[in-house]
Simulated assay, not measured.
Amino acid sequence: MSKLQDKVVIITGGAGGIGGGIAKAMVKEGAVVAIVDVNEEMGQAMEKELQAISPKSMFIKADLMDHKNLFKIVDTVVEKCGKLDVLVNNAHASRQFTIEETSQEDLDLSFGTGFYPTFYLMQAALPHLKETKGSVINFASGAGIRGQETQGAYAAAKEAIRGISRVAANEWGPFGVNVNIISPLANSPGVQAWAKAQPEYYEQVVNKIPLGRFGELEEDIGRVAVFLASEDSRYITGQTLMVDGGSVMLS
């Protein structure tokens, strides 16, 4: 039997990039995946690709900045699928500025697309995850762990996500719900565009990665997400997994 056979999964930002890679990896392990994204064209295209493997998988168009309607996402999936096993909070948007230049609007974007949806979707999912003894997978970043320049708004929101993930791991452990964090370094469309625009700088960065490359969306990041969503990780909770080729080594 596949590792995620008949598990029902919600993935935010699942129309492409890391979220899309996770979605592909999970349907190949038997999951029914609901991808949530604001990009309708990409979402519908990904839905077709996922349904070729997992016919019940679906695309839900939603603006994660509309926090009042986040509970509807969980309600829709549970109504259609009968349960929820895994919540993957992947979506996040931000702008790069120094702390001195960062505005309230910049903070609102980062927290509004990253931290708040993660928090509210976790709240919405918990009653259902209690029933399935399910899992939450949240996303951090080396930008927050290392304190990367010009990433103040992004780093703050990502570290806030790590904080609530650890709290949830303690609070939800007695229910059999595990909560973990992936901090990835991925060969995303944005990284690919950057590599073309600044090839020399890209090579400098790659050369500093111990494993010598950016992670593949499905094969590297997606497979770790499959592990965290499966029974293989049932005794792991509250942990940050650095899926970054060794770029950050936590002590």
Rank of each mutant, 00 (worst) to 15 (best):
S2G: 10
L4P: 04
Q5F: 05
D6T: 14
T12S: 10
T12E: 10
G14T: 08
G14P: 01
G14N: 09
G14S: 00
G19V: 06
G20P: 08
G20D: 02
A25Y: 00
A25Q: 03
M26W: 01
K28E: 13
G30D: 09
G30P: 15
V33P: 06
A34L: 06
I35Y: 06
V38G: 07
V38A: 15
N39Y: 11
N39V: 05
E40Y: 02
E40P: 12
E41M: 05
M42A: 02
G43N: 00
E47A: 11
E49G: 04
Q51I: 07
A52T: 09
S54W: 03
S57R: 03
M58T: 14
F59H: 04
I60A: 09
K61W: 04
A62R: 15
A62T: 12
A62S: 14
M65A: 09
K68L: 07
L70H: 12
E79Q: 15
K80F: 05
C81R: 12
D85L: 07
V88E: 03
V88S: 02
N89W: 02
N90F: 08
H92R: 03
H92T: 02
H92L: 07
H92D: 03
A93P: 06
S94P: 04
Q96S: 12
T98P: 01
E101A: 05
E101F: 07
Q104S: 15
E105H: 09
D106C: 12
L109F: 11
F111P: 00
T113E: 13
T113W: 06
T118A: 07
F119V: 02
M122R: 02
A125R: 00
P127I: 00
L129F: 09
K130P: 12
T132D: 13
G134V: 03
N138R: 05
N138G: 07
A140W: 06
S141R: 08
G142V: 04
R146K: 11
R146S: 12
R146L: 04
T150P: 04
G152N: 02
G152C: 10
A153K: 04
Y154L: 07
G163I: 10
G163N: 15
I164T: 09
I164L: 10
V167T: 08
V167D: 11
N170A: 13
W172L: 10
W172R: 14
F175Q: 14
N178I: 07
N178K: 09
I181T: 13
I181R: 09
P184F: 11
L185V: 00
N187T: 02
P189K: 15
P189H: 05
G190Y: 05
A193G: 13
A195G: 01
A195S: 14
P199W: 11
Y201A: 12
E203G: 13
V205F: 01
K208R: 14
K208C: 00
G212A: 11
G212R: 13
G212I: 15
F214H: 07
G215D: 09
E218Q: 07
E218M: 14
E218A: 06
E219A: 05
V224L: 06
A225H: 07
V226L: 01
V226K: 00
F227D: 02
L228H: 01
E231N: 13
D232M: 09
I236E: 04
G238R: 07
Q239T: 15
L241F: 13
G245K: 13
G246R: 13
S247Q: 09
L250K: 08
S251D: 05
